[in-house]
Design a protein around this nucleic acid. Structure first.
Length: 518
RNA sequence: CGGGGCGUGGCGCAGCCUGGUAGCGCAUCUGCUUUGGGAGCAGAGGGUCGCGUGUUCGAAUCACGCCGCCCCGACCA
């Protein structure tokens, strides 16, 4: 059967999934690899999605009381060295600036040895240390608290292996940093943001997630507690889509972030940090994409409705164009999610059929096609990207023009709801809680089976455990690693009582999610 | 960084084993025909075959080195 994409996923098998993913990124015009290793060029359609993500998330962050700032791209080496586990966690992936000038030596342009920096600068992998330094100067009194700051920035982490959007050397993100008078308040902030991320992911990205706490060895370097939202991709793997950390007084101690409390005592602040990145776009692609390309939730589609005129090179073309112009204007007057509907009248001099398939691949939620017959009958023919086909055939709908205009916002809402419902159903129906031993876990995830079987779609496992620490935890992690599994998080949503621990057999204290992951 | 695969016009690939100076499909451009849907015919443009060194009269093809991409592992938010 003919599909809009050059690479197809093969019925749930994971083997073809990476190729399919790359095909979507490329053919949906989202991004391309750049001349710089591990870095990507985000193209207009992909960046448009990011801008909408920024807009929606920025609003929520500000509504929660945070102000935006901008801190330097460079961080003095001495800053990053201040918090021991923080350095430990990031040391292996730092880009370091050592010179400030180039010189041609022996005909070769190279860093001028005479321009060596006294103190090397690192390109920020995250900004806790430089923001903490500012906090230590900004915060003097309990009246300065809480300090609620956010920044939109690029960061660099020199990863071994990169994938477009999911893990790139440079990526765009938002990082929130807050300081509070006590641990209780800082924990509240950490969880409030976690919930904000969950709500944002579900409502705006139509990507259902499970929020929970990370296990001890997956904590952010320097954190006391780390929480995440985890989304299920269409190959069954988990994607960590956002994190929120309670940093305790670790950074406050390292950087002397103190305030005088009501009784005049000098007291350490409790800090938090949290972020989501362009990785979310990868999550959207792997959550909603299909064999015809990307399917964008209307909330983040740069163009929600695209109108393609069916021109014939005949006199009635003028009528078609006029009809399309008026339709574009009428739709632009309508609102969805409190903002004008984003409509594009695609007048590019390209064959109509090609335009249609380009928009299908890019995932425009509604694609309208107008020909002379539509004009004569005063109707609008359109396709819904969320349910493009009936079997193999493309499903085309027709509706009186005024009815379509009046119902457009509702239709976009419906598409958003359909995408979310599909993803939600996939998530919920693929978490098994009937696996209660390491043996059963190994069997389910295909240990010892041949490649084809091991390659089948697997979801997640939810199981009780006794929350072991130290060597016991490390042993379990090792065991999971041999199955390519990891503990994703301990969901916030927990039952009162728990069965015996899947690993130790001891009394369970909470449920955890186990999955393959990105 | 270890194991495997790959790198040939924008995209997908053949040619490589058995060296003789580049080909196919899609896309692009032009013209004609077609027109409720990914059109047909004819013609055209576009590649120093990832980079470098070597072997050879001659290298996409053989050897060595390097770079990049993908998968698995290691690592990691």
């Amino acid at each position: 059967m003919q599909r809009a994409l050059s690479v197809h996923r093969s019925d749930g098998a994971r083997s073809n999934f990476p190729n399919w993913y790359q095909a979507v990124v490329r053919e949906a015009d989202m991004a391309e690899i750049s001349p710089v290793r591990g870095c990507m060029i985000i193209k207009p359609w992909g960046y448009g999605v990011w801008e909408l993500i920024q807009k929606e998330l920025d609003k929520r962050i500000k509504d929660a009381g945070h102000d935006n700032c901008y801190f330097p791209l460079f961080i003095p080496l001495s800053f990053i060295a201040k918090e021991a586990s923080h350095v430990g966690g990031f040391a292996k992936e730092m880009a370091v600036v050592t010179h400030h000038r180039l010189k041609t030596i022996d005909g070769k342009l190279q860093p001028d040895p005479d321009s060596k920096l006294e103190e090397p600068l690192i390109v920020r992998p995250t900004s806790e240390t430089i923001i903490g330094d500012a906090f230590s100067r900004w915060i003097k009194s309990h009246r300065d608290l809480p300090m609620l700051i956010n920044q939109w920035a690029n960061v660099v982490r020199w990863e071994m292996r990169t994938r477009l959007f999911l893990r790139t050397t440079e990526f765009l993100w938002q990082e929130g940093h807050t300081a509070h008078a006590d641990g209780h308040e800082a924990m509240e902030e950490t969880l409030r943001i976690l919930d904000l991320y969950r709500e944002f992911s579900e409502k705006i990205l139509a990507m259902p997630v499970i929020d929970g706490e990370k296990s001890a060895n997956e904590r952010f370097p320097g954190a006391v507690k780390t929480y995440s939202i985890e989304a299920m991709m269409q190959d069954g793997k988990a994607l960590q889509a956002g994190t929120s950390h309670y940093l305790g007084t670790h950074f406050a101690e390292a950087q002397n972030i103190r305030f005088q409390n009501e009784t005049g005592e000098l007291t350490l602040c409790h800090t938090t940090s949290w972020g989501v990145s362009t990785r979310l776009i990868g999550g959207v692609i792997m959550t909603h994409g299909d064999d015809d390309g990307l399917r964008l939730p209307p909330t983040i589609a740069p163009k929600q409705i695209v109108i393609v005129p069916m021109l014939r090179g005949k006199p009635e073309d003028a009528d078609v164009l006029g009809f399309c112009h008026r339709l574009t204007d009428a739709l632009s007057q309508m609102k969805v999610y409190g903002q004008p509907i984003r409509v594009l009248f695609d007048t590019k001099d390209v064959k109509s059929a090609d335009k249609r398939w380009n928009w299908v691949r890019r995932g425009a939620p509604i694609i309208v096609e107008i020909g002379p017959r539509d004009v004569a009958n005063g109707v609008v023919s359109f396709m819904r990207r969320d349910s493009l086909r009936d079997g193999d055939k493309v499903k085309s709908h027709s509706m009186p023009r005024d009815e379509f205009v009046a119902g457009a916002a509702g239709l976009l809402n419906q598409i958003q709801a359909t995408l979310f419902a599909e993803a939600k159903n996939r998530l919920e129906s693929n978490i098994r809680s009937d696996i209660t031993s390491p043996g059963a876990l190994a069997e389910y995830f295909g240990a010892g089976k041949d490649d084809d079987e091991a390659d089948e779609f697997k979801g997640w496992v939810r199981a009780p455990w006794s929350n072991p620490t130290g060597a016991a935890l490390a042993g379990i992690e090792q065991q999971l690693k041999s199955l390519k599994l990891s503990i994703r998080n301990a969901p916030m949503d927990q039952d009162e009582s728990h069965g015996p621990c899947i690993f130790t057999g001891e009394k369970g204290v909470q449920d955890i999610l186990i999955a393959r992951s990105y």
